[in-house]
């Protein structure tokens, strides 16, 4: 475990350079170039804000603002998008960089960190856009928004653990590359993001609490929409669960690290 992180530190140059170059490789040959980095989250925000909010007319009793639903929606989307992009990026990382993994000897988990870096930058861009649109909608945000930082940190641990787990299993069970995005899509609609939890009958709500991503999403929603401080108990529980999940994933990765190049 210590070696796992030590190697990351000694390869920090690679992680950084590789990330910058991957952006370059993705965008530098397009006409709009780096603008594409912004366009994607911008369109996403607009779709959810404009289209969904005019279709779904849901009132939030606690909040007067007519834009309450948009804010609710965007805060959930923000959290979900980060979870989704991080999981998928990490899951695909060996397959996408086959040429590197199969031919060059280096600690392969450095690639996980380039994925985290790339998802994190996308997330910060999206977050900035969302916060800007809140100012436009006259939704006040106070310093409590800083609680997002530790919560997001735990979210990274959780999503990365999930991604690492799948990335190793998918080497042997290639179907996962196709199955996981579909499963995550289902999970999206089983998480109260587009709709509030209240519309679910009470005796079914229990099932929603079993969904770990629900807790992250609800912390985001409550922080951003109501400015509510997340409860310490809930935070510690998700932190402990995420850390346990991470150690399981790393152990699995360590077990198969050597043979990844043979089977990818």
């Amino acid at each position: 475990m210590i070696k796992f992180f030590k190697e990351i530190i000694s390869y920090k140059n690679f992680i950084f350079i590789f990330y910058l170059n991957s952006i370059k490789s993705k965008f530098s040959n397009n006409n709009l170039g780096y603008l594409w980095i912004i366009i994607n989250p911008l369109v996403q925000v607009m779709i959810y804000a404009l289209i969904l909010s005019s279709v779904m007319k849901i009132k939030f009793l606690q909040i007067e603002s007519e834009y309450a639903y948009i804010i609710y929606l965007l805060s959930g989307i923000l959290c979900w998008t980060f979870f989704y992009s991080l999981t998928i990026n990490i899951m695909n990382v060996f397959f996408k960089n086959k040429n590197l993994v199969k031919k060059i000897n280096f600690p392969k988990h450095t690639l996980y960190f380039t994925s985290i870096l790339s998802s994190l930058v996308d997330f910060i861009l999206l977050l900035t856009l969302v916060l800007l649109s809140f100012i436009y909608l006259n939704h006040s945000i106070n310093f409590k928004i800083l609680y997002l930082i530790p919560v997001t940190f735990v979210l990274i641990i959780f999503s990365a653990s999930f991604g690492i787990l799948i990335s190793v299993l998918a080497i042997f069970i290639k179907d996962l590359y196709h199955a996981v995005p579909i499963i995550l899509n289902l999970l999206f609609w089983l998480t109260p993001i587009v709709y509030p939890l209240d519309i679910i009958p009470v005796n079914y709500q229990g099932y929603f609490f079993m969904n770990p991503i629900f807790h992250f999403v609800s912390i985001y929603q409550e922080l951003i929409l109501y400015g509510k401080t997340p409860s310490i108990t809930l935070f510690s529980i998700i932190l402990i669960i995420s850390l346990m999940f991470l150690s399981i994933s790393i152990a699995l990765y360590k077990k198969f690290e050597e043979v990844i190049a043979d089977y990818i």
């Binding site: 140059n13 350079i17 370059k24 530098s28 040959n29 040429n99 199969k102």
Partner: peptide, 22 residues
């Protein structure tokens, strides 16, 4: 072409490759 990204130019590939060598 092992370890090279074909979308990147020669210089960027050198950076990738050499940073992999620490």
């Amino acid at each position: 072409g092992a370890g090279f990204d074909y979308e990147l130019d020669g210089e960027a590939n050198c950076f990738n490759y050499l940073s992999l060598n620490g």
